[in-house]
Structures are given as structure tokens and as C-alpha cells.
Write a protein that binds this DNA or RNA. Structure first.
Lengths: 221, 221, 221, 221
DNA sequence: TATGAATGAGCATTCATTCAT
DNA sequence: AATGAATGAATGCTCATTCAT
């Protein structure tokens, strides 16, 4: 990274941070207004009102810029979720609050959802892995909460990581849905729905017995 | 002239289709191995072992090529799901079979999952909308099946479209999961898990009473 | 060139000529309808209803095709002009008839004017020379007629080649004018106008005395 | 930002203009040496000694570059002609001075004649019309001067626009001729010849009576 | 002869990145 | 630090020409 040696211990960092912030905002604006293709260094600089070259004083290259945009766009959400999942509530409560916060976050900053989608695009390509480190951490934490719930006997025995994946993707799906269908349902309503469906789905109540699949097996291509 | 007189009535079409097929395969290979950015007409041609210009004998431009790749990669799956959802089984059965087929499809052709992700990428940018027509159709059909389930009293009253979105995304999430974590769980097991979680989640049984969210409201940032 | 050895002394040549003719017509059609840029071997073949490769059985390459199109499009006109200029009329008469025929030729086959313009384009580039052989021959013949007129005392002493150039270009200009302004003036009227202006201009009558240019000399940039 | 604060108020514009100038010169050079087909952005850049991309800092695309080349190559001439035609001389004088300036302009910058030809090429294809706006304006102005001459009684009654076309094309033809035949005739001589031929041709003196065309009518194909 | 699939050199254009000022 | 002119590799696409059938 850029090791910086400010002449005045505090000010340059503030100023520097402000500029980095501005640049990142510009990337987000551009991404939302005109799509990923329009995010060129030129356009970003224009948007901020600085010269193209200046961006390179703050970011090694375009990739690093985009990475940091993604990073800092989602950091607050993940921090919040981390806090919730590490809190004192019951697993069930944690999950509902998580869903709630998730929906609320993107409700307040709708632009950021684009970043979420972008994250998948790059994550897929770059590391050969399909998900960002951040995403995996989230799933791991949810997973742990679910494991707690199982231990407590509130949830039935189920692969916690798979369940966590289902839950997280359910949240993302709902964010997406809310963005697309601008019906008036409140964040709370929808969060409760997710939590409800998921928690009943994994609750310790008796199993439904869907043995019907066996019958279908024959049909397989 | 445009009148073709194939020596063997079927061969020319077969041959042509084979070439188109080869090109599409190359696109998929490239997409998987090196990501969307690496899918250039040049590289695709190289991969197939033909000249750049030859691709243009089969596809008007790059966009059309990518569209058809997406199309033919996902068409069989969607056709199958369409068939299942329109069949005679109970809603619950339909959904489990759907999940099962979904997982199985990508289990057999793991490369195609990348296409699934790509689909979202383009859909997002192109139409200003975030999902492809095909995806929306699937959700609509699942949604109808859920509505049936509700009418029959098997499922509780819930927004069918939101529920359908959760279900479909759950399936996709599981496909993704299976790709990443190559543990030995069978398609059937995982499909049953999805169905189980989802169907319990939306079953007509009594509601859980998660009123705990209200207590949390104060904490809002 | 293509030396051809027809199996039947007459027929193949006829057939061959017919095809060459068709191809040339197609080039002209295309040039007129859609401009030079649209004259691709593909489009030409399409227009004729044959395969792209077939054209190459008749013409070595695109350049040769275009050259021959130009050649045969203008050949009849030039043959006619040649005949007129070599005839028995007086120089003045010859020139007026020439102008008349010139205008009439393009009045009847308006498409060909495009070829005339094209001729200049290629002539300029190809040989490093600016005009086609054919054009030069025409100017030479007109020039000879003017020289005759001078000898006879009908025209005043003037550089015959320059005068010829003026005359020929005057004709071309009028063809162009007629094409652009579709007013009803007859070919005869306009031909007479050209001849009139030109012949008076070069007639043996006393010189105008425009010494006014000398006065202007100072102004030169 | 876009606010420029030149250190020396004039320099940046000068430098920028110099580069634009260089690029345009290169286009002209190339056009003359090797023809329009050789005017590729690559070759132009090579000629100037800059990178291909640099051209795009000065011109939006190839079309704009060519347009500006044409524009600035012919603008000074047309400005001069405009000035002359709008001046205080008699119509006859104006025309001779025009012819003189016309010839002189291309005598001094022989390369530019190619542009003149190019202008026709594009004008023809692009607008569906055959002439550039600039050319039409010139003809219109000459036309007006001729109309004046007619009113004054100096010229006989004749279609002013047709006559103007003949005159302008006569000038162009002479420029062309001078370029091709590098005989020593001075600009003044040739300009006087054009003016002489044209002015006598359209002077108010008695008409020649060339009724001989009627006799020829029979011969028509 | 005729075909038309295949070729690949060639072109205009974009854009991340560098570097002299 | 900041600039922005310059770069040139990379890309999508075209089209004259070839050649196996």
C-alpha cells in the first residue's frame, strides 16, 4: 500500500481520506448511473473534478480502486451484521435482526446494491474463487449462530453452513426483490417474512415427510 | 443463392450446429477458466482453432454470441423446470423436484454455473433491469405453484412472489455451495434439504411469534 | 488476362459475356443505390444471384472489376464522341454535337454519372496520374478539332488543349448540374448553351480588353 | 477541471493548433502520396511521429479529422473568393480576379488540389448530394455576380446558375490542367484565358447562329 | 464451372497507465 | 502533489481472396 509521510501529522491524512472518499463516491455514482462499462478512470476523475493522473496517487491501479470501493461500500453493513451476530440475543432473534438490518441498509443506500452484484462478478473471476472473503466471513458467522441454535435445541439438526448460505442468499434475494418491485412493504415486514420462513424451516419441529421425491426418481433424464 | 441442397438431408445442419456448438463451448470454457474479460473474439477463435472471421459467419456480433451461449446453456434447465412446475404433482412435490433438478443440472455441467452468474451481470447493465426474462418467468411459475399451495391450504398465506424468489435464490445458492464445497452430499439430500426448509417455512402450521424485533428497533443507527 | 478456351466456339463466350455483363450491372446498381462503400464482392454476388467465388472466375480481383465497369460504362459514350469528332462537320458543329451527345448519354442512363465521378477518384490514386487514359484521349481529340478550327480561322489562336479541357469539363459540369437540378430544360437547350458560350468564347472575333487584372495585382496576399 | 490557465496567454492555443496543423498536414501528405485508401489513423500518426491514440485527443473520429482537413484546406480560398465576389469591381473584373486567385491558390499549394477532389467524393456519398455546402455557396455567389452583369447589360441573358457552374468548373479544370501539364504558363495568363473565354462566351454581343444541331438530330441512336 | 466456408490482414476506436512539467 | 498529454496494446468487426469440394 501507499505509505504516506504527512508533513503535518493529522491534516494530510484527513485531506487524503477525503479525496479517496470522493473518488470512491464517484465510482459508485458512475456505476449506478451508467453501468460498469462507464467506469473509466477518465470519467471517474471528471466526476470528482480532478485529473486522471491524480487517482493514481491514491490507488495503484483501477483494480485496487474498485476493490476498495466494494470494500468500503459493504464494510458498514458487515460490521453491523458482525456486531449483531456476536451479540446476546437468541439465535432466532439474531437472524431476524440480521435480515432486518440487511434490508434496511440497502433501502437507505440503494446505489450500493449494484456494488453487491459487482462483487460477485469480480470475485468469481479474480481469485478463481467465487466469493469474497467478506462474504465467506458472514456466512461463517451466521453458520455459527445456527450451530448455537441447534445446540440449544431450538433448531433441528441440519448442516449449519448450508443453512447459513440459504439464509444469507435469501436476504440478498429480498433486497433485490425490493429494489425491483417498489411496492410499499416495510423493511420490517419483509425481514420478518424471511426470518419466519427460514426459522420455521429449520425449527426443531417434526419433519415433514416428503418421500414423494423417491417416486419421481424414475423420471430422471 | 440461398437454396441449399444438402447431399445428405440432415448433415449440413448438423455440421453447422456442431460448429456453433464448438464456438459456444469455447466461450464457456474461456469464461470459466479466465473470466468474462478474457472472452474476446480472438481468444474464442483460438480456443476453437478457427479464424476470428469465421465466428462472424455464425453470429452477427459478440453480443449475439454471448446471448446464445446464455440461452442454450440455460434453456434445457428452464424447459425442464417449466415442465415440472406445469405437471400434476402437488405444489410441495413440484418444488422439491424443481430443487432436485436444479441441483442436478449444474452438478452434471458445472461450467454452466458461471453462465448463470454472467446472466445477472448483463441483465443488470443492459435492460436497466436486474434480471433476465427467463429468470422472471421461472419466478412467475414458481409463484403460481405457491399460490396453488396456498389455495389448497397446504401453505400459509404469504406473498407468493416473494416466497418464490426466496425459493429460487435458495436453489441457486445451493448450487453455488455445492460447487464450492466439494463435499460428498448427494443432489437428493441437498434438494430435500432446500425443499424441507422452504416448505416447513411456508407451511400452514402455526406462526412462530418473533416479536423480538420490536425490542431491537431502538438500536438503529 | 483470362485466356479462355471455350469448348463450343460461340456459346460459352456468349454465356460468359452475359455473366460479366450481369456482374457489372450489379456493381453499377450498388454504387448508385448505396454508394461506393457498399460495393463489396459479397453484395455484388448477392445482387447477381451467384456465389462470391464465381466473380473471381471472371475478374482477377476487385480492382479489375471496377476498372472494367468504368470502362464499359463509358465506352459507348466515348465511341460516339470519337465518331462525332472524327466526322465531317465543321469544328463548331462537332463541338455542339459532342456536348449534346454528352448530356443525352447521362440523361438516359443517370446511374452512370456516379461512375464518372468514381473514375476521377481512382484515376487520381492509382497511376499517380489524375486522369484515365480514356479521358485524355477525349481531350486530345477535342483539342485536335479546336486546332482545326483555329487553322480555318474560325477560332482565335488559343492553346487548344487548355480550351479542350475547358470544354470537356464544361460538359461534365452541365451533366452534373442537370442531375442535381431537375428543372425541365431539354438536353438540346443546355447543349446549345455550352456550345454557344464556348464557341463565342473562343471565336475569332476581336478580343475583349480586360486589362483590369493588372490593377488588382497589388492586393495579393 | 476544464479551466486552463496558460502561463503565456497565447502559447497553449498555439501549441495545440500546431499539433492539429501537423496532423492535418500529414493527412494531406498521405492523401497525395498514396491516395485516400492509405489515410488510416495508424499511417497518419506514423507520418506525424505520434501515437495513434494521440490523434483522438484532437479529433473525435476519423470523419471529423477529414472534415476539418477539407475545411481548413479550402477555407482560405473560399474566403478570398467571397471577398472578391462581394467587392466593388465590375462583374467581369470580379470573375477574372476570381479565376486568377483560384489558380494562384493551388499553384502555391499544389497538394490541396487532391482535397478538392476528395471533397467531391465524400459529398457525393454522404449527403446523397453531390456537392459540398461550400461549393454550392461559391456557385451561388458567382451566379449573383453574373446576374448583375446581365442586369447591367454587359452580359447577355443566360441562366446565371448554369453559367456560374460552367465558370467554376472551368477554373477547377484549369487548376487540374496546370497541375498535370507543368508547362510554364503563368497564373495570370491562364486566368485571363478562362475569363476571356467565359466573358466573351456570355457577353452581350450578337449570338452565333448554330442551327446545325437540328440537322444532326436524325442520327440519334 | 461454381460454390461458399474459411481465412487473416487491416481498420477505427478505447482506455489504463506513465511521466515530464 | 497534481496534472493531463501521450502512449500503445487490445478489441470488435470487415471484407477481399483462396481453395476444397
Amino acid at each position: 500500500m501507499k505509505t504516506r509521510q504527512p508533513q503535518h501529522p493529522t491534516e494530510p491524512t484527513l485531506w487524503t481520506n477525503f479525496k479517496r472518499q470522493s473518488i470512491q463516491e464517484a465510482v459508485i455514482q458512475l456505476m449506478c448511473r451508467e453501468g460498469l462499462k462507464s467506469v473509466t478512470m477518465e470519467r471517474v476523475a471528471q466526476e470528482v473534478g480532478i485529473a486522471k493522473g491524480t487517482i493514481y496517487l491514491h490507488y495503484r491501479d483501477k483494480q485496487q480502486l474498485l476493490d476498495e470501493v466494494k470494500e468500503s461500500a459493504l464494510a458498514p453493513l458487515h460490521a453491523r451484521l458482525h456486531e449483531i451476530l456476536g451479540g446476546d440475543n437468541s439465535p432466532a432473534e439474531k437472524l431476524e435482526i440480521c435480515a432486518n438490518r440487511h434490508l434496511a441498509y440497502f433501502d437507505e443506500r440503494k446505489e450500493l446494491f449494484r456494488i453487491l452484484l459487482y462483487e460477485r462478478e469480480v470475485a468469481r473471476v479474480q481469485g478463481g474463487r467465487y466469493q469474497s472473503e467478506r462474504y465467506r466471513r458472514l456466512v461463517r458467522e451466521v453458520s455459527r449462530v445456527i450451530a448455537e441454535g441447534i445446540e440449544e435445541g431450538a433448531l433441528r439438526t441440519i448442516d449449519p453452513e448450508k443453512a447459513a448460505t440459504l439464509f444469507v442468499e435469501g436476504c440478498v434475494a429480498m433486497v433485490n426483490y425490493r429494489l425491483l418491485h417498489d411496492q410499499g412493504d416495510s423493511v420490517d415486514q419483509d425481514a420478518r417474512m424471511i426470518a419466519n420462513v427460514f426459522l420455521r424451516g429449520v425449527s426443531a419441529a417434526e419433519d415433514l415427510s416428503p418421500t414423494f421425491v423417491a417416486r419421481q426418481k424414475v423420471r430422471r433424464k
